[in-house]
Amino acid sequence: MRFQVRYLVCLMAAIQFTSCVVDATYLPRRMFQRPGVQELLANSAPALEKPLQALETRKPPVEVEIFVMSKCPDARDCVRDLVLPVMAQIYDSGIITLRPTYIGTPDDSNAGMACKHGPDECLGDILELCAYELHKDRPQMWLGFINCMGQNYQKIPQDAHVSNCASEYGLSFEQLERCAASEDENRGMELLRSSARRAIDRGISTSCTVTVNGKTVCVRDNGQWKGCTGSKEDLVQEVQHAYDNE
């Protein structure tokens, strides 16, 4: 992305971990430029291509939350193989809402952030949060974008990859860029800092963790499903059970 270069502290070398449990590499408040020269990975969320319409219900919808990191292979698998198929199946029943929360460590000394897979991940997290903030009521857009980004997470946050994923799902690359670069309240870095605090408050540090009405129901860690089978049917049943018992 096209942001001004300015490091406030020395960065540790970015190390790729298999297990995406928070253990972060630092990103200061001002981010830096990355060239965009890569191709789009073609397969990403075909089940959500059409707009989805939530129906009115007599009960509040079940709140499903995914705790993730943008450059984490476990998050990629979790979104692609579990969350996206569930949303495609039951979103338009009106019984479910979904939000992404990003795992990291806020540094309040200079309003910066630390992310496990380095500064590029912090910027990827911000871009995905911006997609969510701009299109909360259209998960076929923001969840499709997140899935597309994750399919080739090694290229996050290169301009070409971000731009192609945005174009694939009807998002404006320019709007995402403005949101990510903005220092206005609740934009850019502050979106990520707030999101990371939410994960910390809930005691969640593993990407990907899925909760239903605040209860952890499934974890994808180190290529393994934990506490669940990872099947779409089981998560649909969890959501339906939570809705029926509200």
Score class of each variant (00 low, 15 high):
I95R: 07
L82I: 03
I95C: 09
V86L: 10
Y91G: 08
Q89I: 05
R76P: 08
R76S: 14
R80C: 12
D92T: 03
D92Y: 01
C78Q: 12
V83S: 11
Q89L: 07
C78W: 11
T97K: 06
G94L: 09
P85A: 02
A88M: 06
D77A: 11
L82A: 04
V79K: 10
D77S: 12
S70C: 01
I90H: 01
D74L: 08
L84R: 06
L84T: 07
L84K: 05
D74P: 10
Y91C: 07
G94E: 09
S70K: 02
V86I: 12
M69F: 07
D77I: 10
L84W: 10
P85M: 06
P73M: 03
I90R: 07
I95H: 09
A88T: 09
V79A: 10
T97M: 06
R76E: 15
A88G: 12
V83L: 15
G94A: 07
Q89K: 09
D74N: 10
I95G: 06
G94D: 10
L98V: 15
L82Q: 08
K71A: 01
A88L: 08
S93A: 00
M87W: 11
A88D: 11
M69R: 05
I96A: 03
I95D: 09
K71L: 04
R76M: 14
S70D: 06
D92E: 09
M69C: 05
A88Q: 03
R99K: 02
I90S: 01
V86N: 11
C78S: 15
P100R: 02
V83G: 10
C72Q: 12
R99L: 04
P73T: 04
I96N: 00
V79E: 13
M69L: 00
Y91H: 14
V83W: 13
P100G: 06
L82S: 07
D92C: 06
A75M: 05
V83N: 12
G94W: 10
L98Y: 15
D81Y: 14
L84E: 14
G94R: 08
P85S: 01
P85T: 04
L98P: 12
D74E: 09
C72I: 13
I96C: 03
Q89Y: 01
L82W: 05
L98T: 11
I95E: 11
Y91L: 11
P85E: 06
Y91Q: 11
P73A: 02
R99E: 05
R76G: 09
R80T: 14
M87G: 08
K71D: 00
L84N: 06
C78E: 12
G94T: 08
R80Y: 15
G94P: 14
P100W: 08
S93K: 02
T97F: 09
P85N: 00
P85W: 05
C72T: 12
I95Q: 09
P73I: 00
V86F: 11
D81E: 15
V86A: 08
D77M: 11
T97A: 04
R76V: 09
Q89G: 01
Q89F: 03
T97Q: 08
